[in-house]
Simulated scan of single mutants.
Amino acid sequence: MTYLVYDGSWNGLMTAVFEYYEYKLCDVSILAEKSFQPSLLGNEKTVITDINKASRVLASLSKKLSSNGFGKLFPVFLSEQHGIEDQLLNFIKLVFSSDKSPEQAYGNTCVLTIDKVAKMVHREKHRMEAFIRFQQLADGLYYAHISPDFNVLPLIAKHFKNRYADQQWLIYDLKRKYGIYYDLSDVQEVTLDISESPTEGSIFHEDEVLYQTLWKDYFQSVNIKPRKNSKLHIRHVPKRYWKYLTEKLPA
């Protein structure tokens, strides 16, 4: 067994795929540095991320797959599922060894896995876009924190840039310790020392508490108790997302 150890980045993974073919390797497993445990039963090869190699792999895949099939690969990588690198490698090997695109061949385990995981990540992306609530801080910055099941920040950046183009905002992933920051021009990744959501009133804009109160009052006023359907509500807004919603926070 040869372990291809990469830096955990998307381009790093694609470089590992390139080197799998470049060195004509056979029995291979691809692992990120943070999860790799040295073994006496295999050989370790460190993969140095090479943008040119990664680009060549991606260019070849884009020609072999439909736009929908190609578009699933990066979200699947962001799922951070255990062993997902090997699943992606197996899928890519199948793509390159087939005359026709195998993306609809659901009888194949790796094809089914890629499709299933892509749908899971897409669902989480959609929910983050729907459930994120910003809080305005004293300096005018709009801040929101999340801790999603999957690393969806790269997937939601475009949505929030388009929707809140006239506001400076920061969405921070507490679980992965990084965020995306929009400065009215570009969105960039940032790393900050944030362990939990801001709670002290002094850090909020003077109008923020009023806005939150008005928002909660609005939801109370439109709530029709006789028509309340808790099961349906939880199906559409699972409880694990309530911590993001201003209207669900305690008074």
Rank of each mutant, 00 (worst) to 15 (best):
Ser230Thr: 04
Ser66Arg: 04
Pro198Tyr: 11
Ser60Ala: 11
Glu33Gly: 06
Glu124Asn: 04
His122Thr: 09
Asp166Tyr: 10
Glu196Cys: 11
Ser79His: 00
Trp169Asn: 01
Trp10Gly: 01
Thr2Lys: 06
Ser202Val: 09
Phe91Pro: 03
Tyr172Phe: 12
Asp149Gly: 04
Glu44His: 13
Tyr211Trp: 14
Val117Gln: 04
Ser230Ile: 10
Glu85Tyr: 15
Ser197Trp: 14
Ile146Tyr: 09
Val111Gly: 02
Leu40Thr: 10
Ile224Thr: 10
Ser230Lys: 10
Gln220Pro: 05
Asn68His: 08
Asp166Cys: 09
Asp193Lys: 08
Phe91Tyr: 13
Glu103Asp: 13
His145Leu: 12
Glu33Phe: 07
Lys216Gly: 11
Glu247Ser: 14
Gly140Cys: 06
Ala118Tyr: 10
Lys34His: 09
Lys119Leu: 01
Tyr244Val: 04
Pro238Thr: 05
Ser9Tyr: 11
Ile203Ser: 03
Thr191Tyr: 11
Asp139Glu: 14
Ser97Cys: 04
Lys72Val: 04
Tyr23Lys: 15
Glu200Trp: 13
Tyr142Trp: 14
Lys161Trp: 08
Thr213Ile: 08
Leu65Pro: 07
Asp217Pro: 13
Ala105Gly: 10
Leu155Met: 11
Lys100Arg: 11
Ser39Arg: 14
Pro250Val: 11
Thr2Ile: 14
Thr109Pro: 04
Phe150Trp: 03
Tyr218Asp: 01
Arg133Ser: 10
His205Lys: 03
Glu33Lys: 08
Ser185Val: 09
Ile84Ala: 06
Asn151Trp: 05
Tyr21Leu: 06
Ile84Ser: 09
Tyr241Pro: 03
Leu31Ala: 11
Asp207Ser: 14
Val17Pro: 00
Glu44Ser: 14
Leu41Ile: 15
Ser185Glu: 05
Val17Phe: 01
Gly107Thr: 13
Asp115Ile: 06
Pro250Gln: 07
Glu44Met: 15
Val111Gln: 03
Gln81Cys: 07
Ile171Pro: 00
Leu89Ile: 03
Phe36Ser: 02
Glu129Pro: 06
Asn52Gly: 01
Pro75Ile: 05
Asn11Ala: 01
His122Ser: 08
Gln104His: 15
Asp186Ile: 15
Phe150Thr: 00
Gly42Lys: 01
Ser230Glu: 05
Lys34Tyr: 08
Asp207His: 15
Ile180Ser: 01
Asn52Ala: 11
Leu112Met: 04
Lys248Asp: 05
Arg123Tyr: 10
Lys248Tyr: 11
Leu192Cys: 12
Lys161Pro: 10
Gly179Lys: 03
Leu153Gln: 00
Phe131Tyr: 09
Ser185Met: 06
Cys110Thr: 13
Pro148Asn: 04
Ser9Arg: 07
Thr46Gln: 12
Arg240Ile: 12
Lys161Cys: 06
Leu41Met: 15
Met120Ser: 10
Leu174Pro: 00
Gly107Tyr: 13
Ser147Ile: 07
Asp139Pro: 06
Gln37Ile: 15
Met120Thr: 03
Pro75His: 07
Arg176Asp: 00
Ser55Arg: 06
Glu22His: 15
Trp169Thr: 02
Ser35Phe: 05
